[in-house]
Simulated scan of single mutants.
Amino acid sequence: MSGERSGRRARVAIVGAGAIAAHSHMPALAAQAHRAEVVAAVDTDPARVREFCAGHGVPAGYTSLEEMLAAERPDIVHVCTPPFLHAQQVVACLEAGAWVWCEKPLCLSLAEFDAISAAEGDGGPYCAVVFQHRFGSGARHLRDLAACGALGRPLVAVCSTTWFRAPEYFAVPWRGRWDTEGGGPAMGHGIHQMDLMLSVLGEWREVRAMAGRLDRDTEAEDVSMALVRFENGAMASVVNSLLSPREESYLRFDFAEATVELRHLYGYRNADWSSTSPLWSPGEDVPSSHAAQLGAVLDAYEKGVRPPVGGADARATLELVAGLYAAALTGAPVRRAELTPDHPFYPRMNGGLSL
Rank of each mutant, 00 (worst) to 15 (best):
P74V: 05
L324Q: 08
P82G: 00
A291T: 15
L318Q: 10
G61W: 03
P341L: 08
E206P: 00
L155G: 04
A209W: 13
S277V: 03
A10R: 04
L243D: 09
V38G: 05
A150K: 10
M225L: 10
G233D: 04
I76N: 01
V223I: 08
V305T: 15
A271H: 10
A234C: 04
E261M: 11
S224M: 11
T317A: 15
A146L: 14
R336C: 06
D75Y: 06
E261C: 10
G61H: 02
C107D: 13
T276L: 15
P282A: 10
R208P: 00
A31T: 11
A220N: 00
H56L: 08
Y268C: 14
E51L: 14
V90F: 01
E221L: 01
D75W: 07
R213H: 09
A226V: 06
D215I: 03
E203G: 06
Y346D: 00
G176A: 13
A291M: 12
S137P: 04
L324T: 13
G352F: 14
L262S: 01
R269W: 07
G304H: 12
G136R: 01
Q32M: 13
Y250C: 02
R35Q: 04
E51F: 13
R336V: 04
Y126T: 00
R9E: 03
I191G: 10
Q293P: 07
L353W: 09
V228I: 14
L262C: 05
E319V: 05
D215E: 14
A139F: 02
Q88D: 14
A47G: 12
C127L: 04
A150R: 12
E221D: 02
L251I: 07
L298P: 02
A316N: 06
P154V: 07
C107L: 12
I20P: 00
S275Q: 09
G331S: 13
G123W: 08
D122C: 12
A10Q: 06
V239K: 06
R153A: 15
L320F: 10
A119T: 07
D45E: 12
